[in-house]
């Protein structure tokens, strides 16, 4: 990891140098989004949604993030955006404890820091643009899976980085749901693959060997989906793969049967909503309990107590509907 970290620092330095030095000098208000990792289809879709919203709303949109899901790199990127005078910065938080202190220091430099896609709940951020509630996602995946593999199943979990707060929250709610509703289900402790698909495949293969009675494996991080699917295909066993996987990543495996279904939301809309929320914050307009957002069919709910702006219900992708999506 150290090597990747050094190299990504170099590339971040290069990227920062290539972008305009001061965005504050321009008249149009600017919103930035810092993903956990650039170069994966999921965050690309958020970037596209953000760009569309920026065009519709007359904003400037900046998209910058680490190349390998590294919390330190993400911190540096957020700090550089604050000092460059960006008006509002949304972060998909990798490490909540690292981001939280920045909320105040951003405010002292006339920037608004908020979270989107992954939260830092106790940081004092004004709003968290949520793709779905962590509870909704954790429950939905377990409900859909138990309906398919039975309420006496043994289920393994392969996650990504152990410090990613959103992934850990989903796993927590999966456990809650199993404990409350499905006493016959055995949910194994999560294994952490870091960011590489190779490691995810090796972990899954070992899980299958360690538990001959395994019925399903959940790929919690999108980066682990192909690895989990590949391990299931190689094993030749009757094991159902699932997870929070984008349609493009899971398409081949949904059609081959290695994956029964996947649960996610539309990141394009999430990116759109993020930039819209940034504009509301910059304008000082705030949020109502129900908000009309341009291009959205249903009103978007805001919970003033938790500060969560909710995109909507999680979506279940299957072999039948996967071709309707492209991200």
């Amino acid at each position: 990891m150290t090597i990747a970290r050094l190299a990504s620092c170099l590339s971040i330095a290069a990227l920062s140098a290539a972008l305009p030095l001061s965005v504050a000098a321009q008249d149009t208000p600017s919103v930035a989004f810092v993903p956990q990792l650039i170069g994966i289809p999921y965050f690309n879709a958020m970037e596209n949604g953000g760009n569309a919203a920026a065009e519709d709303l007359g904003m400037q949109f900046i998209y910058q993030g680490p190349v390998d899901a590294n919390p330190l790199d993400q911190l540096q990127i957020v700090e550089s955006l604050i000092s460059r005078g960006v008006d509002a910065i949304a972060v998909s938080v990798l490490d909540a404890s690292a981001i939280a202190p920045l909320v105040d220091s951003a405010a002292s430099q006339d920037a608004i820091l908020f979270t989107s896609d992954s939260d830092a709940a106790d940081s004092g951020r004004p709003v968290y643009v949520a793709q779905a509630t962590d509870e909704g996602l954790g429950f939905k995946l377990i409900d859909e899976l138990v309906a398919r593999v039975g309420d006496d199943a043994t289920i393994g979990i392969v996650s990504g980085e152990a410090t990613a707060s959103n992934l850990n929250a989903w796993i927590g709610f999966m456990r809650d749901r199993v404990a409350a509703e499905y006493p016959g289900v055995t949910l194994l402790d999560p294994e952490f693959a870091g960011g590489t698909a190779e490691r995810a495949a090796q972990l899954s293969t070992d899980l299958i060997a360690a538990h001959p009675d395994l019925d399903a494996i959940i790929a919690v991080a999108s980066s682990t989906c192909p690895g989990v699917a590949q391990a299931i295909e190689t094993s030749g066993k009757e094991i159902m793969g699932t997870g929070y996987c984008s349609p493009n990543t899971a398409r081949a495996y949904l059609k081959s049967g290695a994956f029964g279904f996947t649960v996610l939301w539309d990141p394009y809309q999430l990116g759109y909503l993020t930039v819209w929320a940034g504009k509301q914050l910059i304008d000082g307009a705030g949020f109502a309990a129900e908000n009309e957002v341009p291009t959205f069919d249903a009103p978007v709910t805001f919970d003033a107590e938790t500060g969560i702006l909710l995109l909507g219900e999680p979506f279940v992708f299957t072999a039948e509907n996967v071709d309707d999506f492209d991200f």
Partner: peptide, 19 residues
Amino acid sequence: FYIAIYRNVSMTIGADIAL
């Protein structure tokens, strides 16, 4: 071999293998 065994390539391929 990587392609043969994993049949996919992600951005983070080979991040740890040098060490």
